[in-house]
């Protein structure tokens, strides 16, 4: 029963990683860059929701929507001012800019909101479901997190595969030049990708802070790195890969904490990543398509 309980915790944590990993993987798929500031957008989302709910006493849903709106705008602005001027620049320059943007967001948060930790009160009411005469309890937040992750995945897969803008996104991710010849505005498509990724980061931020209630300017860093790992683990650029990578990472992390060592859990997680990449360098679901000439 304990095993089942750990597994559910793992899936829940993994769901958060998956939601964050989606942002990494979508931006990578289209802009071919690693947006290392993505983790810090999570933190901004957490703060916005914190101030809206705990400070101004607004309804949690209003707080979540506000966090999504602010993060969406932030994501678009980050792309517009930091990355867009570097579209033709070497990948290394963009990577360094992304790291710089990450520190910029952390330090701005420190200036604006102080470096001390705030206690985030969960947006989901306390309480839990009980199974097997109380041997297994699953709290509401866990259920909500998993459901939100499923809804996001289904929605995103539908958007990417069925809508005109979604198809334009896939076209841009494969060949920007050919996409332009079709009449697709590549810059707008990249902005849209940053917008979606950042809105998801806001949701992830709120869920994360609800589960681990200490919020400070570096809150986004570790989950950001873990989600990036999850994206690579699943095959960066692949949306199903982000889900699989995120869930596996969450499960491995919880199991490592439960059965092996709390201190070494992160090391174990990254060791698994290294092993997977040694065996399959493109990640679990990543694939290499041979082009016909």
């Amino acid at each position: 029963m304990l095993f089942l309980s750990y597994l559910i915790s793992g899936i829940s944590l993994g769901s958060i990683y998956a939601i964050i990993a989606l942002g990494y993987t979508m931006v990578y798929g289209i802009a071919k860059m690693l947006n290392f500031a993505h983790g810090d957008v999570i933190m901004v989302g957490g703060y916005i929701c914190f101030f809206a709910c705990s400070y101004y006493g607004l309804h949690p849903l209003v707080g979540i929507v506000m966090a999504m709106v602010v993060c969406t705008v932030l994501g678009i602005l980050i792309d517009r001012f930091a990355y867009k001027p570097l579209r033709q620049a070497p990948a290394l320059a963009v990577l360094i800019t992304a790291i710089g943007m990450s520190y910029f967001l952390q330090n701005s948060a420190q200036l604006l909101w102080g470096s001390g930790s705030r206690v985030f009160s969960s947006v989901i009411g306390k309480g839990s479901f009980s199974f097997f005469d109380g041997q297994l309890t699953i709290n509401y937040l866990t259920v909500v997190t998993i459901v939100v992750c499923i809804v996001i995945m289904v929605g995103l897969v539908w958007f990417i595969n069925q809508t005109k803008r979604g198809k334009a996104m896939r076209a841009c991710s494969e060949d920007k030049g050919a996409a332009q010849l079709m009449g697709i505005n590549v810059d707008n498509t990249i902005s849209l990708t940053f917008a979606i990724g950042s809105a998801l980061a806001a949701i992830a931020g709120v869920l994360l802070c609800s589960a681990y209630p200490l919020l400070n300017p570096t809150t986004g860093m570790m989950p950001g790195i873990k989600a990036f790992t999850a994206a690579v683990f699943g095959g960066i650029g692949s949306i199903p890969g982000a889900l699989v990578g995120g869930l596996l990472l969450g499960i491995i992390e919880i199991f490592a904490k439960a059965y092996l060592s709390t201190q070494f859990s992160d090391a174990i997680v990254f060791a698994v990543l290294i092993i997977v990449l040694l065996v399959k360098p493109t990640g679990l679901l990543g694939k290499k398509i041979n082009e016909k000439v």
Binding site: K164, K167, A168, R170, A171, E174, D175, G177, A178, A179, L181, M182, G183, I184, I289, E291, V293
Partner: peptide, 22 residues
């Protein structure tokens, strides 16, 4: 374009649909 540059990871129908994007 040279080298055809069809969208390899999209279906034939989707490629044609993108041709009519505008």
């Amino acid at each position: 374009p040279e080298g055809r540059r069809v969208f390899l990871q999209m279906s034939v129908a989707e490629n044609l649909e993108l041709g009519a994007y505008t």
